[in-house]
Computed example of a mutant assay.
Amino acid sequence: MNKYMNWTSLTEKQKELQFSGSIHVRKNGTNLISDGFGHAIRSEQIKNQPQTRFSIASGSKIFTSIAICKLVEEGKLTFDTTIKNCLRVALPYFDDAITIHHLLTHTSGIPDYFDEDKMDDYEELWETFPMYQVRSPKDFLPMFQLEKMQDKVGRTFKYNNTGYILLGLVVEAISGMDFDAYIAKTIFTKIGMTNSGYFSVDELPENVACGYIEKPDGAVKTNVFSLPAKGGPDGGAYVTAHDMGIFWEALMNGELLSAEMMRNFMAPQEPVDEDIFYGYIGFMESNEQGVVKFIQMGYDPGVNYRSVYYPEHDLTIIVCSNQSEGAYEMLKELERITVNEI
């Protein structure tokens, strides 16, 4: 822990929430705090550590977006390329005008395979579709490819996982590589995220936290049957909180994208709510002076991930959790401590 900041309230907040997970705070290339709380594997009483790997659900959409931006930089496609021109996939009811930009900004109008208006819990998906068969982007296709458009192309922002599955298929079609291999080569290995990857739940490496779901009677179960067998373009990468600190520093130092592409990548594209916008980089809070902070979040049964990056202060805060609640509250406490000290 950093001796110049008072972390007492954080310890109190963790006890109050019974938070289980890992945190990492980094400023100007210096680690202020890295710590773990609770248990990675409860049955064995194995504790969460700073080096524990956690699934981060939709927090990993940013990797898919970077992959697309790299292919644009290489001249292999543009943000205005239509999906019909780069995918040989039957999507009979999807509008031919849908572009890469629409998918990146959740403005395509296509149906989401997980429609939150129709079901409350992601876990419900796997009651009728075997989760153990979902191990690559193409495995998601039966869940949406014969569905009809939900809205007109480009009309409005509506968060959409299907769009990122299609982006992953684009990455595979253009690069000639499996999606997870492309991300590993161009991001994880390139910048030294040595503990990160897309892992199958039946072939997990060491130091991985099990995700835990509270049942109605107060007991807990793991999320092994509540998620796809392997994460993909819309979410499900495993990382350590420390690796995500490395990621944000490398991204902002220009190690992943050119300066010109970074300006495009970080620009607000779609209004979401009052001072919240969405861009290729994800959610952001912005005012008249510019972006205040970039915001990442990921939520699945037994998974809760939150992260913010303050560009003006080069401050990164990362919270990974292997249970459904508590990460947001821990993030707000870390923001209160660190931002107030700037």
Rank of each mutant, 00 (worst) to 15 (best):
N2K: 10
K3M: 08
K13S: 07
Q14R: 11
K15D: 07
Q18N: 15
V25A: 10
K27Q: 15
N28I: 03
G36V: 06
N48A: 02
Q51T: 12
G59C: 06
S60N: 05
I62D: 00
I68V: 11
L71C: 00
V72S: 00
G75A: 08
T78L: 01
D80A: 11
I83K: 05
N85R: 15
R88Y: 05
P92F: 06
H102S: 01
H102I: 08
L104Y: 06
H106Y: 06
D112G: 05
D115K: 12
D117Q: 14
E127N: 14
M131D: 14
S136W: 13
S136I: 07
S136N: 14
F144M: 03
Q145Y: 09
K148M: 06
K148L: 02
K148E: 09
M149W: 01
M149A: 05
T156P: 14
N161M: 01
L167I: 07
L167R: 12
L167H: 10
L169F: 11
L169M: 15
L169E: 04
V170H: 06
E172V: 08
A173L: 02
I174G: 08
G176L: 00
M177I: 01
F179C: 05
K185Q: 15
I187H: 04
K190Y: 05
M193S: 04
N195Y: 10
Y198G: 04
F199H: 07
F199L: 03
E206M: 09
N207Q: 11
V208K: 00
C210V: 02
D217L: 04
D217K: 06
G218S: 06
K221W: 04
L227I: 14
L227A: 08
A229D: 03
G235Y: 07
A237R: 04
Y238E: 04
V239H: 02
T240H: 01
H242C: 08
M261L: 08
M262I: 09
N264Y: 10
P268N: 12
Q269R: 13
D273H: 12
D273S: 15
Y278T: 08
I281E: 02
E285C: 07
E288N: 12
Q289V: 01
K293R: 15
I295N: 13
M297T: 15
Y299C: 15
G302F: 13
Y305H: 15
E312C: 01
H313F: 12
D314H: 14
D314Y: 07
L315F: 07
I318K: 00
S321P: 00
A327F: 03
M330P: 05
M330L: 11
E341H: 02
